[in-house]
Design a binder for these strands. Structure first.
Lengths: 253, 253
DNA sequence: ACCTGAACACCGTTCAAGT
DNA sequence: ACCTGAACACCGTTCAAGT
């Protein structure tokens, strides 16, 4: 029941469980130093600059020494993705809807500050202490609204997903070369489309392009768009809460 | 106004504009053959199996010959991500809400059939003919509901993002080793969490775990969860449409 | 026990040379 | 113009050897 399952060693280390060494020289590094160095490199040069060799040289060690602390580069990326997350905002005293918006916006801002997170953040369920702290605070903000645990987790994952895809869109459009160097930025986008679409195969899309739908204030996606989509989700949550409060059905299906 | 912008050559080729060669031997390949070979490899071995060398050898050519057709491996991935997309479902005669659900579910199914799409699909706005066809059909399904072009595109991007994050969750949970070989599957998840969380730092989350919130029918995420989150979004869209129909405000802010 | 250095099996991409 | 083959500058990861 409460038996421990085997987790990747890097996850144990994420939770502060560095193995206690008994014999031989004391370790010169720990996971925090390594992940911090990797994060600094990624912030400065992007994910492409992060190699076992570059991280090792930044902490002053041979590349192969890192394998005492992480099982693989993949595990190093997992550690980076947890260490880079700041503390979640405090839900105390805030109406649930305000907090959900604040939480989602903060998640998106973190992704935009560290765009290298985009390709690695969504591929794994949260297991690190910082990411789980965010999840905890969102569940707390939804306490007492009549939702069960599974529903609250679903809401959290829908909001986290929205933050992620919005950030990905902004990163590729606003800063053309941050993520995908092969595709132009927002300004080119509408005009590039206009040159490619024929109105017969793409009737609705070319009508929208002709009407200027792609020209937002700052391009393809701006903050107004973020708010717009988020309101869609929050309206849905509100409808669900209203249904639960009125004591309608309990499970659907 | 309708002037052509410079696009990556691979995008030109995506739209069937292979350059017309005048002198010398005729090309032995085209982008379709190369992308299809790469897709077959990715389906069989995952993204890690796709290298310039492996793709080249499958089409019977030296690795360096591929650079006549794609500018870089990055461009090859872009081509793969468009070629792998099937035709969108036909919106004709369907109520908008039914079609939006069908469309989103079909997007998610494509991602689950080709999980290697997950790390590459979200990083770039759609520029290929197949992905834009999906966008066109969704805009068409929302015609006549009082939404403007920008709003319809925002709805499309919220739905596409939802399909993507849900697929990522299912891929990592249901099939533990598809995307991230370092993290266990759904069965382990709740038990692993239980061993790590202390109730003081994570009060809401450990309460939810204790209540069994993570044990769905098939694990962490199942189809019921997909439907649940999608309904949140569609309820939001419906609320927006109702507002527009009643002629309330026109843009907010 | 921790770290190094050499070595292995790969990468993506360039460029000159062939036809 | 297309394709090849050699070459370059990297990768992540292993393993034996040092301390």
């Amino acid at each position: 029941m409460s038996q421990e399952r085997s987790l990747p060693p890097v996850v144990e280390r994420l939770w502060g469980r560095e193995p206690v060494s008994r014999r031989g020289p004391r370790p010169r590094l720990d996971l925090t130093m390594i992940a911090s160095a990797a994060i600094e490199i990624a912030d400065a040069e992007g994910l492409a600059g992060v190699s076992m060799a570059s991280v090792a040289s930044r902490v002053g060690v041979a590349a192969t020494a890192l394998y005492r602390y992480v099982g693989s580069k993949e595990e190093l990326l997992t550690a980076m993705a947890d260490f880079v997350v700041p503390m979640p905002p405090d839900p105390a005293g805030r109406p649930w809807r305000d907090y959900l918006e604040l939480w989602t916006r903060a998640q998106r801002d973190t992704l935009l500050e560290h765009p290298w997170l985009l390709p690695i953040a969504q591929l794994t369920p949260p297991l690190g202490p910082r990411r789980l702290l965010w999840l905890d605070r969102l569940l707390a903000a939804l306490d007492g609204m009549g939702l069960d645990g599974g529903e609250k987790i679903n809401v959290a994952s829908a909001l986290a997903g929205y933050a992620l895809t919005d950030a990905a869109l902004v990163a590729t459009s606003g800063e053309p070369h941050v993520v995908d160097p092969g595709v132009g930025g927002a300004d080119d986008y509408g005009e590039a489309l206009a040159g490619l679409l024929d109105a017969e195969t793409y009737p609705a899309l070319s009508a929208a392009v002709r009407a200027g739908a792609l020209r937002g204030a700052e391009g393809w996606v701006d903050d107004g768009d973020f708010h717009f989509g988020l309101e869609l989700l929050l309206d849905g949550v509100e409808a669900l809460i209203a249904r639960r409060a009125s004591g309608d059905d309990v499970g659907g299906k």
